[in-house]
């Protein structure tokens, strides 16, 4: 199949950037979207043009590195699919495809389709952990966890930190990301000990990074490749409210 790519190019953080059009011939439908970009890039390199920069690593939908807005939708809009797992058979011959980076103030641009998502790391550093050091922990079976809680915690813990939720949200809100970690840990007895501190600190960091607020539109849930549900945001809100009730302002 043949395709037209309308793709965002930006030399570095300071550059204004703009769209570039590439005609791609004889695309194999079994290619992944990123493999298609690999082929385009090889062509560019042979012509002495710098290839299109984009993040990717595991290419099996778990590392969360890939971050492309394809035709206006984060990861291309197929259920539970990251861009690296999106295959060209989902597109039709002759189609024009736009490819853009994640857009959010809290994810500053680096180059082309690469942005800086270290804000997520800083949110985790602010409280997305259980404060236990190595050693001196009880036997694993000394802490029973209801299967239902453990399963729900796993639903939340699956987050791959790709940032599609932020990219899709009209407010560039990181609530789904923060909610996933807060919920995961709040659902486990191990994480309950410092749940109030965690909720307050992570929310504060989220605000500091410049993410927007949640307007409950549900876009984040719709694009999340791990299908993390909106009810975790309700849980985060609940955890936050709980923290205000139990700890006041911290």
């Amino acid at each position: 199949m043949n395709l037209t790519l309308k793709i965002w190019r930006q030399k570095d953080a300071k550059d204004i950037g703009g769209f570039e059009t590439h005609e791609v011939r004889e695309v194999n439908p079994d290619m992944s979207f990123l493999e298609m970009l690999d082929v385009v890039n090889e062509g560019l390199i042979l012509r002495g043009i710098e290839p299109i920069a984009f993040d990717s690593d595991c290419r099996e939908g778990i590392c969360g590195a890939c971050s492309l807005v394809i035709n206006g939708t984060a990861h291309g809009g197929h259920k539970a699919t990251t861009a690296c797992q999106l295959h060209m058979r989902k597109f039709s011959d002759g189609e024009t495809i736009t490819v853009e980076p994640w857009r959010a103030r809290a994810f500053p641009m680096v180059k082309d389709l690469v942005c800086d998502r270290s804000a997520f790391d800083r949110i985790i550093q602010a409280g997305g952990f259980v404060s236990v050091s190595t050693g001196g922990v009880p036997d694993a079976n000394a802490i029973p966890v209801a299967k239902e809680d453990s399963d729900q915690a796993m639903d939340a813990a699956q987050c791959i930190g790709c940032g599609a939720c932020v990219a899709a949200c009209k407010n560039a809100s990181a609530m789904l990301f923060v909610a996933a970690k807060v919920s995961h840990l709040a659902l486990m007895p191990q994480g309950k000990v410092e749940r109030e501190r965690r909720a307050l600190n992570m929310v504060a960091q989220m605000d500091t990074e410049g993410f927007g607020a949640c307007s409950v539109t549900g876009s984040c849930e719709a694009v999340c490749p791990k299908e993390i549900r909106l009810d975790f945001i309700a849980r985060l809100n609940r955890e936050y409210g709980r923290a205000l009730l139990h700890r006041g302002g911290g």
Binding site: V137, A140, V145, Q190
Partner: peptide, 15 residues
């Protein structure tokens, strides 16, 4: 396993 459980790793569990 003890360490990871204490960190809150959601291992599969029985009822």
């Amino acid at each position: 396993i003890d360490q990871c459980v204490a960190q809150g790793v959601p291992f599969a569990r029985e009822y």
